[in-house]
Each structure stands twice: as structure tokens, then as C-alpha cells.
Simulated scan of single mutants.
Amino acid sequence: MNYSEKENFQQKNIKSKSLFYRVSQFVGFLLGARFFVAILLTFALYVSTFFLFNQDETFRKFVFDFKVHGIIFCTVLTILAGGIINQFYDFEKDHIVKPFRTRIQSFIKQKYFLYVYLFLCIISLTVAWLISHNVFLFFVVYQFFMWFYSHKLSRILIVNNLTFVSLTLYPFFGMMVYYETFSRKVLLMAIFLFLILLCIDIVKDTLTKSVDKAFGYITIPNYFKSNTTKSIIISLLIITMAVSMKLIIRTGISGFMAYYFTGGLFVMIFCIYLLLNSTRKSKFLTLNILRFWVFVGIIAMLLNGIENKL
């Protein structure tokens, strides 16, 4: 290999390393901001807003309702900001729990995550202020508790689980208030979702029990005995089944949502069976089944809404 060929080879090598570094930075940012979670929540917000909370408005009117799109846009930015600040405070813990994600994130300095966090918060609040003062106040509260959860509440027993689930549902509550959609069916569906997300969060904590304890996170699994934790999760699943039955029998729910809540009874029973085995594999399987069932619920609501609108 002559000098010219050697120089070209070195330049190509430098370019490939530079490209790899840039791609790694981009992927690291997406993981740090929990971009894919934000996409799922955006999809869920649009589906629930149009097909559950906003049943009287036509699709054309909904498309051109820029106030609603603005609120959802602010929500997405706040969720992305919340993901960034959460990974900032959990960075040391994530080194052990999520080594691959942490390694990808290491291509970006933590200070740049904070800059993006502040930028997203400012843009979200600016848009919220342009919509209305009430919307601005709504997002000030949302962003404050997002930060306060990551900074302090995530380490407090029971409060951490309740706050996490409440923050997840907070945007949906906002849409319910905006459209003034108050009914027994919506209330029971909110309770169902709250309970299933609470189960997911507690099961997740069982998989990181020792790491949480080492870093000062007081969770249900590392505070109570294993049998007590198992009893709590199973009790919550049984209550979730009771809520599902109430939805099916008392609210007259029909279509795909009726199939969803009926199928959910069998899903909960199977999850209880898995939890009784009390192995790490069974807990991991339970966690993913419950997560998948939440996604199935969004699809069922979408299909049910399309069926009702036709």
C-alpha cells in the first residue's frame, strides 16, 4: 500500500468513526429522552381524545382544532423532558440496570441532556402560554412534578409508584377536564388503567430490587418481604378484574372494548398464575404481558371508535 492509498484509508476510517459517533449520539439522545415511550403516549392521547373524550365533534373539526394539537404537542415535549431529567438522576442506577442504554447515552455529556431538558420545557411552556393561561398553569404543575418525582419522590415508599402512575395519566386527565367528559364508564376505565399501570410499576421494581436498595430507592419489593409484595400485586390484579367486570356488566360497553375487558379477565388470571411461581422469568413475562395488554387496549379503543363513527 503506497502513501496515497494509506492516507485515503485513514480518512475513510476517520469518517466511519465520526459517523458511528454521530449515530450513537442520536440514538443515545432518543433513549435518554424515552422518545419511543413519548410516541406511544402521543398515539394513546390522540386515540383517547377523539374516540373517548370528544365523541360529539366531527373528524374534520377535530383535525382543525389547533388548541387540542397544541396541548398534545406540549404534552409530548414535557414527556421527553421528563424522560431526560429522570435518566439524569437515575444515571448511576441505570449503569447496572440498563448497561447497554447507558453505554449508548455515554456518547453525550450529561450537561447537554440538561440543556435539551431546559429547551423542551421552555418551548412547551411558551406554546402553553399562547394557548391559554389555564393550559400554562396545567403544564407548570406537570413539569414541576416530573422534576420533583425524579429528584425526590422516586425514592419514597409507595409514593414513588403512585406518583409515577399519576404522572403517566395526568395528560389524559387534562383532556377529560378540557372536554368535560365525566361519566361512570370513563371513571371506571381510568381506574382500570391506573391499577394495571400500578401493577406494571411494582412488578418492574421486583426485577431491580437489590439495585434500588443499594442506591437508596425505597420500593415495595425491597421494603416488604417477597410474599407480601406478591400478595399486593395479586390483590391489585384481582381488583382490576373486578373493575373490568363492572365495566362489562354495568356500563353497557360494547364492541372491541367489550372483548378487550373480557379478554383481560383471562390475562389477569394468567398473570396471577405466573406470579405464584415467583421466579425472575415469570415476573419478567408478567411485566411484558401487562405492558402489551395496555397497548392492545389502545388498539381496541381505536377500532371501537372507528366502528362507532361509521
Rank of each mutant, 00 (worst) to 15 (best):
296 V>H: 06
299 I>L: 13
154 S>P: 00
13 N>A: 01
300 A>D: 06
191 I>L: 15
42 T>F: 03
84 I>D: 02
235 S>L: 15
92 E>R: 09
306 I>C: 04
169 L>Y: 02
211 V>D: 12
239 I>V: 15
267 V>W: 06
9 F>R: 08
48 S>G: 04
303 L>Q: 05
155 R>W: 06
36 F>R: 12
195 L>A: 11
294 V>K: 12
181 T>D: 07
37 V>M: 09
74 C>F: 01
293 W>Y: 15
126 T>N: 10
129 W>R: 03
147 W>R: 04
242 A>V: 11
172 F>T: 02
166 S>T: 10
197 L>A: 13
219 T>N: 08
8 N>D: 09
299 I>V: 15
57 E>L: 08
45 L>E: 07
100 F>K: 15
218 I>T: 11
282 S>F: 02
147 W>N: 03
228 T>D: 14
12 K>L: 13
194 F>W: 10
93 K>Q: 07
71 I>S: 00
260 Y>R: 01
218 I>G: 00
148 F>P: 00
225 K>R: 08
188 L>E: 06
45 L>Q: 04
212 D>L: 09
98 K>L: 09
293 W>I: 06
191 I>Y: 13
28 G>S: 12
89 Y>K: 03
218 I>V: 11
105 Q>N: 11
251 T>H: 11
242 A>S: 04
102 T>N: 06
221 P>K: 03
288 N>G: 07
212 D>N: 14
303 L>K: 09
48 S>C: 02
195 L>F: 15
43 F>Q: 10
125 L>E: 03
31 L>T: 13
76 V>F: 13
16 S>L: 10
8 N>G: 08
281 K>Y: 14
67 K>W: 12
120 L>Y: 08
128 A>K: 00
189 M>N: 14
32 G>Y: 12
32 G>H: 11
145 F>R: 04
249 I>G: 12
28 G>N: 13
198 L>A: 15
156 I>S: 02
124 S>A: 10
281 K>L: 14
50 F>I: 03
193 L>G: 12
194 F>G: 12
106 S>Y: 06
288 N>V: 01
147 W>I: 01
136 F>A: 14
213 K>L: 06
169 L>S: 06
236 L>I: 10
246 K>Y: 11
159 V>F: 04
